[in-house]
Design a binder for these strands. Structure first.
Length: 824
RNA sequence: GCCCGGGUGGUGGAAUGGUAGACACGGAGGACUCAAAAUCCUUUGCCCCCAAGGCGUGCGGGUUCGAGUCCCGCCCCGGGUACCA
């Protein structure tokens, strides 16, 4: 009797071998065609959860599959190991973040190995490693020298929970922190920024050439928020010193302006407010800043009442010379455009709402259709009430209005982006220190390469005061100016951890380089990433920043010129949800991968993730899920038994393999095997893993029937070996073991099988006969049947005769060998 | 509100305009067993006693010899986004 499938023994054996054998280690000068397959490197939060399992299963499958196809596949792994959880743990328990993080890395690495995922571990990268910090800092100094990194005083998002500032992207729509969920407040602080807006246009236009999910591209386009419009300055009545600049996408509606609005935070508010209105305006500004925090928490649309007060000043309409009142109102945002608008209630709903509330006049400048029942009309039409624009269509009028403003020297056409520069300062300890020294004589001076990395001191106390341990450290902040050698103050802010993850994929190409962040040659060899795999939650933040870094580093000469995008193809996997959207700790533990490694094994768990549905779809983990995983385990057992069994091996399994002449059943299973090769290969290419698994299950079922009836030895062996090779990327341990026992050697070093096109076609087909579109009969025919015979057979069918009721066939549609459609 | 996705058996899901429900889970029945587990076999969309037949992919229309698939109009669910001028 053959051994039964001993999961633990087999998986441990092969994991140890993959660790030492180096089949998946690739060198930069590997002569095979190169491919770079990458899963987003994780924040190390301890042992892997099912989301990781899903991610790494897809990645590992592709790595193993493409390797069998003869490619040199770069498959590195690393850790996004800076971040708040480690620091919060330090505050709570006193354990140093490094100790804490290293322990979590070990746990994660262990569970990744237990999954059977293979990586070139020689290339492992950790963002908290001094050798990585050094080059993150180096890149920052290069950005600083080129003006891409700069410091400015600005109202910034402050998260009281995280005790640090946040980038705009890290603040959710309701004004809460994407990490802690706390309400974010505005603070005026001197902070470091990266000039992402310099690349706004390229970040937008290059999206067109990426093989990314459309919705991710759409999200990025919306985030960049390009808007074509016109900027112009309006004179202020009674003042020659100031003017009001506004941005509009509708310069054609300028004749309809009945008032103007500036944001409460606008610097001109003070100047514009006349004495008589000072009290009211000041009260409004205070109220507005309070209210914005409260109202942002409410998702009620009704809370979006537009409120404002009159400043006492008037702006002069450049088209009419007429004066309109200037209001301060909270529906105009300081952060967009110029922070001021001309208000046209006739063609803008927001302006209309405000005008109605405060009794301001409405002038229409576009003729709405007769049946128009709305308030502000934003559609197309011809101009009215607009003097020299009357009769023109909106688009023509826009051009003419802009031309007028340009010629008058008060404005011109302009492009606005919603995208803003990336705020990278963080008032935290466990991050990459910003390598800048502030010298009272020389100003901001970058720490030179020889002195990098700047490492945070270890002798710090982690206290829940909210103050960064670096800022209160007795000596860290004192440094000699690299330029003049005099006393200077070191920057104590660290970088947003998204900085680290914006270039790790480049470091993987050349992880031990000691003279530069990476060599150009190494990057040229592997970049861009051929297949990037990760969660949809990074659709904007990480993916946008990584794209920005790649472009900036190319312009600075570190990345080869022709590489302007880091990730050629992106796949965003679906999320694993537990009981709807709630993820509770107890439930999380209940489905922890370790539990399955200990029982059914990694192969069954991997197979389950591949089988359960399309990879892009979310999956709800439920009570029934364990049954499905057991089903995958059962399938692997069936594969084990048919591959290694004989008639006597396993009760209930009949595997009769004999030496004899080839017969019909041999030819059929051979055809099925070749069809399977074609089907699985195609499904692997199109990310349809669930159907590939189904096809292999079906084939295994056929194999059982075949073997039960007496299989011919060569045909049987071919069929089994084919199945094992096709399954090898999905269930690597069991297939490696079966292959070794049957043939010796490594299944993952085999060449991916090629289907014989002649054998992919089957001998017999089911011909479906329809009458008036309804299926009336199905008959077995030779696949090479000719039209005449097929039609003859169709008409000869009794069921078809019944359906025809003796009526004449008016039309016959023939799609051989599958279908004949008769029309009466 | 706007922009994407998506509605198929009891469940997860298959289906280049051509046999709807592959494959699996669950259910039912059976074989093996003293018994159970494991394994193996049969069956499983709905209506109908069975068969013949009919009905079936959120709803209503349309195109087509033929629609889950394409077009138009709705309904519902999920996600993203929201005073961006």
């Amino acid at each position: 009797m053959a051994d039964s499938y001993n999961v633990k023994e087999i998986e441990a054996k092969w994991q140890a071998r993959w660790d030492t054998e180096g089949l998946y280690q690739v060198d930069n000068d590997d002569p095979r065609p190169k491919a770079y397959v990458l899963c987003m490197y994780p924040y190390p939060s301890g042992a892997a959860h099912q989301g990781h399992v899903r991610n790494y299963t897809f990645g590992d499958l592709i790595v193993r599959y493409r390797t069998m196809r003869g490619e040199a596949v770069l498959s590195p792994f690393g850790f996004d190991s800076f971040g708040l959880p480690a620091e919060n743990a330090a505050i709570k328990t006193g354990v140093h973040p490094r100790t804490f993080t290293n322990a979590r890395i070990d746990e994660l690495k262990e569970s990744v190995k237990k999954l059977g995922a293979v990586y070139d571990w020689r290339r492992e990268v950790k963002s908290h490693d001094p050798s990585y910090i050094k080059w993150s800092q180096f890149i920052f100094t290069k950005f600083f020298e080129s003006g891409l990194a700069y410091k400015k005083n600005a109202p910034v998002n402050w998260c009281p929970g995280c005790q640090t500032v946040l980038a705009n992207e890290q603040v959710l729509a309701d004004g809460t922190c994407e990490r802690s969920g706390d309400q974010v407040v505005k603070r005026d602080l001197e902070q470091w920024f990266l000039a992402t807006t310099r690349y706004a246009e390229e970040l937008l236009s290059d999206l067109d050439n990426l093989e990314w999910p459309e919705r991710v591209k759409t999200m990025q386009r919306n985030w960049i928020g390009k808007s074509q419009g016109t900027k112009f300055k309006m004179a202020i009545a009674g003042s020659d010193d100031f003017f009001l600049e506004v941005f509009t996408t509708r310069p054609d509606t300028t004749f309809g302006m009945t008032y103007a609005v500036i944001a409460p935070e606008h610097p001109l508010v003070e100047v514009l407010t006349k004495d008589a209105f000072k009290v009211e305006v000041e009260a409004f500004r205070v109220e507005a800043s309070d209210r914005s925090e409260i109202e942002r928490q409410s998702t009620e649309v009704t809370s979006k009442i537009k409120r404002g007060v009159f400043t006492g000043s008037y702006a002069v309409n450049p088209f009419t010379g007429k004066e309109v009142p200037i209001y301060v109102a909270d529906y105009v945002l300081m952060g967009y455009g110029t922070g001021a608008i001309m208000a046209v209630p006739g063609e803008d709903q927001r302006d209309y709402d405000f005008a109605k509330l405060y009794g301001l006049p409405v002038i229409r400048t576009v003729q709405p259709p007769d049946d128009f029942a709305g308030e502000a009309y934003t559609g197309s039409g011809s101009k009215i009430n607009s003097d020299w624009l009357n009769g023109l269509e909106v688009d023509e009028a826009k051009a003419k209005a802009t031309q007028f403003l340009t010629e008058a020297g008060v404005g011109g056409s302009t492009i606005q982006y919603r995208l803003r520069d990336w705020l990278v300062s963080r008032q935290r300890y466990w991050g990459c220190p910003i390598p800048i020294v502030n010298c009272p004589r020389c100003g901001l001076v970058p720490v030179p390469l020889e002195a990098l990395p700047v490492l945070a001191p270890d002798d710090v106390e982690f206290l829940p005061t909210g103050e960064s341990p670096l800022a209160v450290h007795p000596t860290f902040k004192f440094a000699a100016c690299p330029k003049c050698g005099g006393d200077a103050i070191r920057e104590t802010d660290t970088m947003d951890t998204f900085v680290d993850s914006s270039w790790y994929f480049l470091r993987f190409c050349d992880p031990t380089e000691d003279e530069a962040p990476f060599s150009k040659e190494a990057v040229a060899a592997w970049m861009p990433v051929d297949q990037y795999i990760g969660g949809i939650e990074h659709a904007i933040l990480h993916l946008m920043y990584a794209r920005f870094f790649t472009k900036a580093l190319a312009d600075l000469g570190y990345v080869p010129d022709h590489i302007r995008e880091p990730f050629k193809r992106l796949f965003t996997q679906g999320m694993i949800r537990l009981g709807g959207s709630k993820m509770s700790k107890s439930k999380g533990n209940l489905v922890a991968p370790q539990r399955y490694f200990d029982t059914v094994g990694a192969d069954s768990l991997r197979l389950f993730h591949l089988f359960v549905g399309p990879p892009a779809d979310d999956f709800d983990w439920s009570e029934q899920t364990d049954d499905v995983i057991d089903g995958c385990f059962r399938f692997l057992n069936r594969v084990w038994r048919i591959s290694l069994g004989t008639a006597e091996s396993f009760p209930g399994v009949t595997v009769k393999v004999v030496n004899r002449e080839t017969n019909h059943s041999d030819r059929e299973i051979l055809r099925l095997a070749h069809r399977l090769i074609a089907k699985v290969s195609e499904d692997y290419e199109r990310w349809s893993y669930n159907t590939a698994v189904a096809a292999m299950m079906e084939f295994t079922n056929s194999l059982y029937r075949y073997a039960g009836n007496g299989a011919q030895v060569e045909t049987f062996d071919f069929a089994v070996d084919t199945l094992i090779m096709l399954l090898a990327p999905m269930a690597p341990h069991i297939t490696a073991e079966i292959w070794e026992r049957r043939n010796g050697g490594l299944v993952h070093a085999q060449k991916w099988p090629t289907p014989d096109p002649d054998l992919v076609k089957s001998e017999k087909e089911t011909l479906v006969i329809q009458v008036n579109g309804k299926v009336r009969d199905k008959i077995e025919v030779d696949s090479g049947i000719d039209e005449q015979t097929a039609v003859y057979l169709a008409l000869a069918s009794l069921k078809v005769q019944q359906a025809l009721h003796g009526q004449t066939v008016r039309k016959t549609i023939v799609k051989l060998p599958k279908m004949i459609s008769l029309v009466i």
